[in-house]
């Protein structure tokens, strides 16, 4: 599936609303602004790492890949 587009800058007021209404945290204006910047930065970096298209990937495949990509070990 196409990866989600990079997020636009995040409004600190949204962070405050999310904190209060979804998670039960009260956030001051200054801290909400810091978090908005940090979350936007995280989202931007993640979006840059995503392939253009993916469809057949699932978290459980990671363990299978670890096993499949191993080589014979010393001492065995």
């Amino acid at each position: 599936m196409p990866s989600d587009a990079p997020s636009p800058p995040i409004d600190p007021a949204l962070i405050q609303q999310q904190g209060r209404q979804l998670h039960g945290f009260a956030l001051g204006d200054a801290r909400a602004t810091e978090l908005a910047i940090e979350v936007a930065r995280i989202q931007e970096r993640m979006a840059a790492a995503m392939p253009d298209f993916w469809f057949f990937d699932e978290p459980v495949q990671f363990l299978a890949e670890l096993d499949a990509l191993a080589c014979a070990e010393d001492g065995q």
Partner: peptide, 13 residues
Amino acid sequence: RYLEATALRGRFL
């Protein structure tokens, strides 16, 4: 976003 990070981990590895 969290699910993208976990789903694509095997591919990136």
